[in-house]
Design a protein around this nucleic acid. Structure first.
Lengths: 181, 181
DNA sequence: TGCTGAGTTGAGTGTACCCTCAAGTTTTGA
DNA sequence: TCAAAACTTGAGGGTACACTCAACTCAGCA
C-alpha cells in the first residue's frame, strides 16, 4: 500500500498503464514488463505497491465495473434519459474503461470464478435499475412487461456499445438517444 | 496439414479441444499443454498438424466468425425473421462458438491487428445484411432510416446475446423473438 | 542534522510457456 | 507385400514470464 506522496503517485501511474494496456493490447499484452515500461517503474517498485500483477489488474477491472454505473445515490429515482446519458458519457469520456467493461462481461479476458459471479450480480442489479426506471415512466404497463423492456433497453445499449467499440465510425450517441423513443 | 484418416481425426480432436477451452477458460487458459491434455495428443503430434498454436486458434476463431452468418447464399433475400432465427440457433446450438464470437468482437482475447480488421469488415457486412432485410420489409421507410434500424436491430441482438452469456437464466430466445415487432 | 521508514533499483530465480526433433509406429497405395 | 509417407511419442531447449531481494536513495520529521 502506498503511504507517501511518491508511492501514491507511482501507484496511479501503474494503474493508468494497466488501464491503457488492457484496452489497447488486451490481457495477453498486459505483461509485467509492459506495465513497468509504460509506467516508467521497475518491477521491485511495482511489488512494493501491489501484491501481484493479478491483484493490480483486478483493481482496474473493478473500477471499470463501477464506472458504468452512475450516481449510485440516484438509484430509485433516475429516469431512462439519465441512464442513457450516463452510458453515453461513460463511452465518450472513458473508452478504455468501456472496452474493459464489455470485455470482462463476455468473460474473454481475465477469467476468474469470483469475477464471473461479480459480473453476473452487477449485471442483474443494473438490469433491475433499468427496469425500475422504465416502470416509473410507464406505470400503465404490467410489472413483468416493464421488467422485460428494461432488460431489452440495457441489452440494446450494450449491443450499441459493442458496435461502437468494433467500429470507430459508429454513431453510438445518436443510436442511444433514439432508443429513448 | 492432415493427409490421412488418423491425421484428420486428430486435427478434429485438437480443434474441439481449443473450442471448448477458449469458451471455458478463455485465451489465457488455452495453453498448449491444456489443448494437448484435452485432445489426448502429444505436442509433437500437434505440431505435425498445425504450424503454431496461434494458427490453430485462429482456425477456431474464423469458424466462430463464419458460424454467426447463416446461409451465405440467402444474402439478399433473407427476411428479418430468418436472421433472428439464425442468431437464436447459433446461440442455442453452439454456445461455445457464440462466446468466442462475442469475445473476439470486443477484442478482449486474441488481439491481433489482422483479426481486428477482419472483425470490423465482417461486422459492417453483417450490419448491411440486416439493413437490407429491414429495408425490403419496410419499403416505405427512407433508405437511411432503414439502415439505422438494421444497425439497431443487430446491436440489440448482440446485446441480448451478451446478456445471455452473462446470465444463464436470461431468456435470449424470447427477447430476440420480441424484437421482430 | 541525522534517523527512520517508505520508495526504488535491477540483476537474478524458478517456472511454465511454445516449440523441436530423433526415434519409433502405423497407414497408405503401388 | 513392402517401401514410402504420415503420424506419434516425449524428453528437452530456449525464452519470456511473474516475482524476489539486498543494497540503495530520498523524503519527512524531531
Amino acid at each position: 500500500m502506498a503511504r507517501s506522496r511518491a508511492g501514491i503517485e507511482t501507484r496511479r501511474r501503474i494503474l493508468d498503464a494497466i488501464r491503457e494496456l488492457l484496452a489497447l493490447k488486451g490481457p495477453e499484452g498486459t505483461t509485467l514488463k509492459a506495465i513497468c515500461d509504460q509506467a516508467d517503474v521497475q518491477p521491485g517498485s511495482f511489488y512494493n505497491l501491489f501484491e501481484s500483477k493479478e491483484q493490480a489488474i483486478l483493481t482496474v477491472v473493478r473500477e471499470a465495473i463501477e464506472a458504468v454505473d452512475p450516481d449510485p445515490g440516484h438509484e430509485g429515482i433516475d429516469t431512462m434519459a439519465d441512464l442513457v446519458q450516463a452510458y453515453i458519457r461513460f463511452m465518450e469520456d472513458d473508452p478504455s474503461l468501456a472496452r474493459i467493461y464489455i470485455s470482462i462481461a463476455v468473460g474473454g479476458g481475465v477469467s476468474d470464478t469470483r469475477l464471473e459471479g461479480r459480473v453476473r450480480r452487477h449485471h442483474r442489479e443494473r438490469a433491475a435499475r433499468f427496469a425500475d426506471a422504465f416502470a416509473r415512466e410507464h406505470s400503465d404497463l404490467p410489472k413483468d412487461r416493464a421488467r422485460r423492456r428494461g432488460e431489452l433497453l440495457l441489452a440494446a445499449l450494450n449491443g450499441l456499445a459493442l458496435s461502437g467499440l468494433i467500429d470507430d465510425e459508429f454513431d453510438f450517441r445518436g443510436h442511444a438517444l433514439e432508443l429513448l423513443h
